[in-house]
Design a protein around this nucleic acid. Structure first.
Length: 667
RNA sequence: GCCCUCGUAGCUCAGUCGGCAGAGCGAUUCACUCGUAAUGAAUAGGUCAGGGGUUCGAUUCCCCUCGAGGGCUCCA
C-alpha cells in the first residue's frame, strides 16, 4: 500500500494513499469541512501527497458559509419538490444567511414560504448526505438538461472562462455537481455547484429558518428574467439563531422610522411627496442642536459659511457636467419665461432651471467671483446645503434615502503643496466632531483610481501624489484602513469613513473626496507667489453626509435616548401631588434661565402614570418632588433606567444637569 | 423604475365568506391628590388611502392612481 505525506494542522504525517479529510479528522467531530491548501473543501475529499489540511468548524465564518450554502441547496430541493417545474438560479451564502433564486410560474406567497420551510426541515431531519461529483462539461449539460440557467452558466464558462458572480456555481477549476442522497443512498436531487458542502444535513438542524422572499433579476440585470428569491438563515445552534432573531428585533425596535413617529420627531406627509421630510418641533430641536454645534466647530476650524439657492439655470450643471454624469438623479426642469402664440407654438424659448443635486458648482462660483491668490488658500467654504435628487421610488427609505436632504457640505480649495496637510486637518476634524456625537468606532476606506486609463481624468502624477498623501493621512489616524483599488470616482481619489453603531451595524458617513475635474471645468485659478497662474485642487467634504441620514443613524444608535444636550426635552418635573407643583415650577424656571429645555407635568395623571409616560418619551431627567423634597428644598432624580437619586438640593441638581449638558454626557 | 406584500380612528391592530364600522392606547371632560412604569368613569373621533367598475347594495370582489414595507436595481 502506498503512502502519502500530509501537513495536518501544521504537523507532517504519513497516511495511506486515498485517505480523506474525514479520516484525518476522526478525532475532531466538530469538523464539517477542511481547508485544503488554504481553500475550503469537502470533508470527504480524497487527499494527495503534499497537501496541507486543517479542519473547518462552525465556529469560524467559513464554516458558517458552508452551512448556509448547504441550507440553500436544501431549500432549492424543497422548492422543486413542492413546485415541480421550477427552474434553478443561483444560491449563494450571504451575510447571516443565504438565498436561492428560482424561476417559478407564480411568485411565492407567505404560505408557500411556510410550506418551503417545513419541507426543508423534513429534508434536513431525514439526514441527507451531500456528494461531490466531478463531471465533464458534456456530463454537466446532460445532468442539467432541464435547467436553462445552469446551462447558461456552463456555456458562459466554456466560452469566456468568465464565471462572474456565478462563481458559487461554477468555479474556475473543474466542473462539479453536488448530489443530495437520501438514507438509502439514492440521488434525490442535484445541482451544479462548486461547493464545498457539509457532509450531511445534520449540522443544519440547529438554527435554520426561511425568512422572506423577493424578486431578483437573473444575474442582477434588469433586462433579464425576473426570478423569485427565497432568503433563509442558518446558524450553528438554536441559541445562535435566537440571538440573530433577537438582533433583528432589536434593530426593529430602534428603527428610526418607528422612533420618529413615537417620539414625534418628523414625518413624510403624503401630500408633500415621497422622500420629503418635515421636522416636528422635537425633531427640530435635536437637529438644530446638531447643526449649531457643528456650525460652531466649523467656524473654529477656519471654515466660512455661505448660502446658495436651491435652483439654478441649466448652464451651471452643463459646465459641471452633472447633467450628463448624473442625469438620472436630477429632477426634471422647470421652464421659465417661455412664450407661445395662440396656436401654442413657442415664440420665445424659455430657460430651464433645475433643483440643485449638488452644492459644489455654487461654491465654485463664489470662489471665482474674484481673482484669488495663494494668500486666500486654503479657502474653506461650508454650507448646510439642501439638495434634491430624483431617487427611484423603490430606493426610498425613511430618512436614510430621500429625495430632498441637507448636506453639511464643504468645499476646500487648496494648492498642491497644501493638499496633504489640509486633508489631514479635515480628517482629524471629522473624527473629532463625530466623537462629540458619541460615535467612536471608525474605519477608513481609501478609494484609488482604476487601472483602466479611460476611467479617470487628470495627470497620473497628480493622482499618485494625491493618493499617497491620502494614504499617509489615513494611516496617521491609526484607524483600520482598507484600500479599494478601482473604487475612486473618475475625478479623484477619496477617503470614506465608516462608523459602527451601538448594535454593531456599519454605516458609511463622511467622505473626503479630492477633485481634479471641476477646477478644470470651471477654469479655476489662483496667482502664486511668483505671479504665475495655477489651478487649485478641490476637496469635497461631507461630514454627516446628509444631516437627515446622520440624524437617523444617531437616533438608532441611541435607540431614541439621546444624550442630554441633544434631547428635545431634557428635564421633566413630576409632582407627587398637585400641591407640590409650584416647587417644581420654581426649579424649572431656574433651569430654563440657563437654557435647559424643561417641562413640569401638572396633568391629572397619577404620579406613576407620569413616570411611565416620560420614561417612554425617553426624557433624560425626571425630577420628582413631594412633601419631603419640598420641605428640604430638594428634588429627587429618576433616570431613564429607573435608578434614583433622592433628596438632591436644588442648587446641586441644577449644577448637575448643566454639567451633563456641557459635557455632552449620556445619562 | 421592477417584483411581491400592504393601506380600517392620532397610534397599534381586530373585523366584514358583499347587508348601518370595533378594541386598546392616545385626546377631551369629570371625580380622585396619590413617593418612583398604566386610578376610575364619561365623551368625542373613521367617505375603511383616492378614483373608476361589477352588484339591489362595496370598507369587503375587479381595475387604475397615490402611498408604505421587504427585496432587485441604483446610491454622484
Amino acid at each position: 500500500m502506498s503512502v502519502i505525506e500530509l501537513t495536518i494542522g501544521g504537523t507532517r504525517r504519513e497516511v495511506p494513499a486515498g485517505t480523506t479529510g474525514a479520516e484525518v479528522f476522526t478525532d475532531t467531530p466538530e469538523a464539517i469541512a477542511i481547508r485544503l491548501n488554504g481553500v475550503p473543501a469537502d470533508l470527504h475529499r480524497e487527499l494527495s501527497d503534499g497537501d496541507a489540511v486543517e479542519p473547518i468548524t462552525l465556529d469560524e465564518p467559513e464554516g458558517l458559509d458552508i452551512l448556509r450554502h448547504s441550507a440553500a441547496h436544501i431549500v432549492a430541493q424543497a422548492v422543486q419538490e413542492l413546485f415541480p417545474g421550477t427552474k434553478l438560479g443561483i444560491g449563494p451564502y450571504i451575510k447571516d444567511g443565504f438565498y436561492f433564486d428560482f424561476d417559478t410560474a407564480e411568485p411565492f406567497t407567505p404560505e408557500d414560504l411556510k410550506a418551503i420551510e417545513k419541507k426543508a426541515q423534513q429534508l434536513i431531519k431525514s439526514g441527507q448526505r451531500f456528494r461531490r461529483v466531478v463531471v465533464s462539461e458534456e456530463e454537466a449539460r446532460r445532468r442539467m438538461a432541464d435547467e436553462p440557467y445552469k446551462l447558461e452558466l456552463i456555456h458562459d464558462r466554456a466560452s469566456t472562462g468568465d464565471t462572474g458572480e456565478a462563481g458559487v456555481e461554477v468555479g474556475a477549476g473543474e466542473l462539479t455537481v453536488y448530489e443530495n442522497l437520501d438514507r438509502r443512498g439514492e440521488v434525490v436531487w442535484q445541482d451544479l455547484c462548486r461547493g464545498p458542502h457539509l457532509p450531511d444535513t445534520k449540522p443544519i438542524r440547529g438554527g435554520f429558518a426561511v425568512t422572506r422572499s423577493s424578486a431578483a433579476y437573473w444575474r442582477g440585470d434588469q433586462a433579464k428574467a425576473a426570478l423569485q428569491r427565497v432568503y433563509g438563515t442558518a446558524w450553528k445552534s438554536k441559541e445562535d439563531l435566537k440571538a440573530y432573531q433577537d438582533r433583528l428585533a432589536e434593530a426593529e425596535r430602534r428603527d428610526h422610522r418607528r422612533l420618529g413617529r413615537e417620539l414625534d420627531l418628523f414625518s413624510f406627509p403624503e401630500e408633500i411627496g415621497s422622500g420629503l421630510s418635515v421636522w416636528h418641533p422635537h425633531g427640530a430641536i435635536a437637529r438644530g442642536e446638531m447643526e449649531q454645534h457643528a456650525r460652531r466647530r466649523h467656524i473654529e476650524n477656519g471654515y466660512s459659511y455661505v448660502y446658495t439657492p436651491h435652483i439654478t439655470k441649466k448652464d451651471l450643471f452643463v459646465t459641471s457636467n452633472h447633467l450628463v454624469t448624473y442625469a438620472d438623479g436630477i429632477w426634471p426642469p422647470i421652464t421659465m419665461d417661455e412664450e407661445r402664440d395662440a396656436e401654442g407654438n413657442v415664440t420665445k424659448p424659455g430657460v430651464d432651471y433645475y433643483l440643485k443635486p449638488m452644492n459644489c458648482p455654487m461654491h465654485i462660483l463664489i470662489y471665482r467671483e474674484r481673482a484669488r491668490s495663494y494668500r486666500d488658500l486654503p479657502l474653506r467654504l461650508a454650507e448646510n446645503g439642501t439638495v434634491y435628487r430624483n431617487e427611484l421610488s423603490g430606493a426610498l427609505h425613511g430618512l436614510t434615502r430621500v429625495r430632498g436632504f441637507t448636506q453639511d457640505d464643504a468645499h476646500l480649495f487648496v494648492t498642491r503643496e497644501q493638499l496633504e496637510e489640509e486633508t489631514a486637518k479635515v480628517l482629524e476634524f471629522v473624527l473629532s466632531l463625530l466623537k462629540d456625537f458619541g460615535l467612536s468606532d471608525f474605519r477608513l476606506e481609501l478609494s484609488m483610481r482604476d487601472e483602466e486609463k479611460s476611467k479617470w481624468i487628470g495627470e497620473e502624477e497628480v493622482w499618485e501624489v494625491a493618493t499617497e498623501a491620502l494614504r499617509r493621512v489615513a494611516r496617521a489616524t491609526g484607524l483600520q484602513l482598507t484600500e479599494e483599488p478601482g473604487e475612486a470616482a473618475f475625478y479623484g481619489p477619496k477617503i470614506d469613513l465608516k462608523v459602527t453603531d451601538a448594535i454593531g451595524r456599519s454605516w458609511q458617513l463622511s467622505t473626503v473626496q479630492l477633485d481634479f475635474n471641476l477646477p478644470e471645468r470651471f477654469d479655476l485659478e489662483y496667482t502664486d507667489r511668483d505671479g504665475s497662474r495655477k489651478r487649485p485642487i478641490m476637496i469635497h467634504r461631507a461630514l454627516f453626509g446628509s444631516i437627515e441620514r446622520f440624524f437617523a443613524i444617531l437616533l438608532e444608535h441611541y435607540a431614541g435616548a439621546f444624550p442630554v444636550w441633544l434631547a428635545p426635552v431634557q428635564v421633566v418635573g413630576i409632582p407627587v401631588a398637585a400641591e407640590y407643583a409650584p416647587h417644581l415650577h420654581e426649579v424649572a424656571e431656574r433651569l430654563r434661565r440657563h437654557g435647559v429645555r424643561v417641562e413640569v407635568d401638572d396633568s391629572d395623571d397619577r404620579m406613576q402614570k407620569k413616570i411611565r409616560t416620560h420614561t417612554k418619551r425617553k426624557i433624560p431627567y425626571q425630577l420628582i418632588a413631594g412633601a419631603e423634597d419640598q420641605a428640604a428644598g430638594a428634588v429627587s432624580f429618576r433616570f431613564r433606567d429607573g435608578s434614583q437619586d433622592n433628596g438632591v438640593p436644588v442648587d446641586e441638581a441644577v449644577a448637575r444637569i448643566l454639567q451633563a449638558i456641557e459635557d455632552k454626557a449620556q445619562v
